[in-house]
Structures are given as C-alpha cells and as structure tokens.
Nucleic acid binder design. Sequence first.
DNA 1: CCGCTAACTTATCGGGGTTAAGCTAGCGGA
DNA 2: TCCGCTAGCTTAACCCCGATAAGTTAGCGG
Lengths: 208, 208
Amino acid sequence: MTGATKRARARRGEGELLRAEIMAAAEKLLIKTGDEGAVSIRAIADAAGVTPPSIYLHFADKTELLAAVCEARFQDFDRYLEEAARGVDDPLEALRARGRAYVRFGLENPEHYRILFMTRPGAERPQRELDQLPGMTAFSHLVEDVARAMDAGLLSAGDPFLVATGLWSTVHGITSLLIARPDFPWPDHDRLLDHMLGVAIRGLEPPA
Amino acid sequence: MTGATKRARARRGEGELLRAEIMAAAEKLLIKTGDEGAVSIRAIADAAGVTPPSIYLHFADKTELLAAVCEARFQDFDRYLEEAARGVDDPLEALRARGRAYVRFGLENPEHYRILFMTRPGAERPQRELDQLPGMTAFSHLVEDVARAMDAGLLSAGDPFLVATGLWSTVHGITSLLIARPDFPWPDHDRLLDHMLGVAIRGLEPPA
DNA sequence: CCGCTAACTTATCGGGGTTAAGCTAGCGGA
DNA sequence: TCCGCTAGCTTAACCCCGATAAGTTAGCGG
C-alpha cells in the first residue's frame, strides 16, 4: 500500500524541506491511528513519498523523530493553558481553569501525551537541560500562579514549587488514568475533575 | 547468547510445568532489564531453555504473557496495601498508610506498574469483567475505607466511589510521574507524597 | 512391539529499525 | 558546452521481532 505519490527531490539547498514533511506525515499517522506502534519508519516514509533511509538523514532514530513531533505539539501547550487562565481574576479560579485545560489538552492529544509523559525516557535520551524539558514553561507559569495565590493569602504559605508539583501530579493522575484505562467505570469526567480540583484547592487553603 | 541449558521435555501430563517456567523467565527478564522492549519472546524462550513457538502452546500472544506476569505480581498488591493499613486505628491514618504503600509498591515494581497502569489496552485485550480488572479488589477495599471514614464523620459525606476514584488518581499521578520522568527535579519523594496526601485528606475533611 | 498423542522443534513468513553503499540531478567553474 | 562535485536521495541488505504451519520425538496404553 503506497500512500503518497513519489515525492520529487528537493532542490539544492532545500534539503531541510523533507524534515518538515516527515514530521507532518508522522504527526498525521500518529493522530489517525492513535497508536505509536502503527507509526513505523516505513509507514512514515511511505506517507511522505520517500524511502525509509531518507528519514535518517534528518533524525538520528525513531525516538528522536517521535519526540520532535510530540514536542512540537506541546509547544502549543503553554499557550493553551495561558489562554484558559487569561481573564480569570480570582487566582484560585485561574488555577482551576488551568487544571481543566491541562486535562482537556491531554485527552485531545492522548498519544502525544502518552509518549511525552507516560513512557520512561530510555537511556538513549540524555539528561536534558531543565528548561528544555517539554512543558517546562507551562510548569513555570504554574509555579508563579501558585506563588501569587500564596501572596494573596488565598493559599496557605509554603513552598510554591512543592505545591505546584503536587498539583501537576494531581492533574496528570487523572489525565493519564483516563488515557490508559478507558475501560474503568469512570464517573463523569467533568464531575471527577471538578471534585479533584475542589479537594486539592480546599486542602491548600489557609485554615478558616 | 543461549541463556539456559536446553530444557528436558516435561513428562506426559506435566505440560503445564512449562507455563510456570515461561512466566518465571519472563518475570526475571522484566525485572533484570527493567524494559518491556528487552523482554522478547525469543529472549524468554532462550532463558527458559525452549524454542519460541513453545510459548504459544501456553499463551495466545505476547501481551497475554506479559499481562499474566504482571497480574500475578499484582495479586500481592491488595495484600500489600491491607498489610500497610492493618493495625492503624485512625481511618484517616489508614488511608494515608494505604496511599504510601501504593506508591512504594509501584516504585518497587515500576515495569509491572507501567505495563498495567500506564499503557493503553489495545483492542486485542477484550473488555474484561469489572471485578477481573487487576487491582480491583484493592480498589474495593479503598472504597470501603472511604465509606467508613465518612460514616465516622472524619470525611465529609459524599459519594465514596467518586472520592476513592479521586484518591486513586492522586496516588497514581505521583507514582506514574516518578516512573516516567525520573529526570524531573523532584522534591524528596516522601515529602512530596506526604504533602499530597495531607492536601487530599484536608480537602476531604468536613468544614470545621 | 505397535500406535497414538502430548510435548515439543524446525522452518518460515512478513514486518520492524537501521546502515552501507550506490546513484542522480543540477550548480559552479573552465 | 562540458566536466566534476556534491546535495539529496535510493537500493540492497542485516539482524531483530512476533507469529504460524508442519514436522518430530518420547513414552504410555494395549
């Protein structure tokens, strides 16, 4: 099954064009099949109208390709969360909006989410600089928001990094479980999420 | 690299012996390598002193084998959690102990945990009966504990199933993130976990 | 001693990631 | 105009994988 017509060779100096076309083909396959396993080097090459070894002219190996695809998608992540929190005055409501957006984004891009946040980075992926980690700017914004809420006295004072890490773990927990175990008899997703966000924020509020 | 000496054929009527030996070999490989990808049918067969097709006399396919291995390990799960909660009088402290034990078990069996709770069940694994899901008895015990704490007035009244699901998501969140993203600059694990359990329980307590 | 069958093995298929080596279009220069 | 060089690919191959069809062998019942 040859997917695309054979691609014409790029002109001199435009070899990088193929890189983008490979990523686009991989992205399309990843979304269409929703299964990392179905996104093979051969299938990607076929969809891009190219032979498999061509891919290695632009990516060291398959994991690097998939990482590039997922990270590209997750560059929208921070923007998406900021958008959701924008215009929400109450800092606690902003945190809630951010959490809801996080889960929504994960469920709308389940395979990207799975690859980035639910698989162990093999020994191949070297230790990356902290601020290079995908989603790190989004996390920084979360820490800032938590700190703001603490300063405003809406959350009890404490370590903003610790609290933000806990909130991240919480929204990741529900996101990843919904992705990994769709067969579980989940309560209504919004009801569960609102419950969890309510519990988390109530647990963080200063004692009355 | 031939791993084990060639295994002697089982005697008549004892064919089931091989099933256990295959699972033992797979379990050993899974723990030693810590990588599902390294646990190939061929490697398992080699370690068991058998040829690859023999495995298919006892398991329909590879996922069934790995599922059997992981579920066997997780039969200890419920016992492990109950043990941790036993003898703790305060129901809230019992919940805490249960949560801590959950995370500990996951981190002690990361690859088992990953396979069972961090991968999408493919279309191959059919919808299982609810009470056949691995870890389901452990979850039932959690629901009961939550209901008891509500009855005792230690948690505000509500839907025990919803609350238990939220607690599960919370401990799963920290467990799975610690497994999937060891490169993140985590706070001390115990500190983070205690913080999260504290927040969750405080958020569930009846208003003072 | 024969035959049946449980408990395997041999041989093979199609597909995967990856690499070494070859080909070719087209630009720079003479 | 033609040559050579090299960017941008392809051809061919290797070794691994999961899985299956068909064959073999050991040992018990008669």
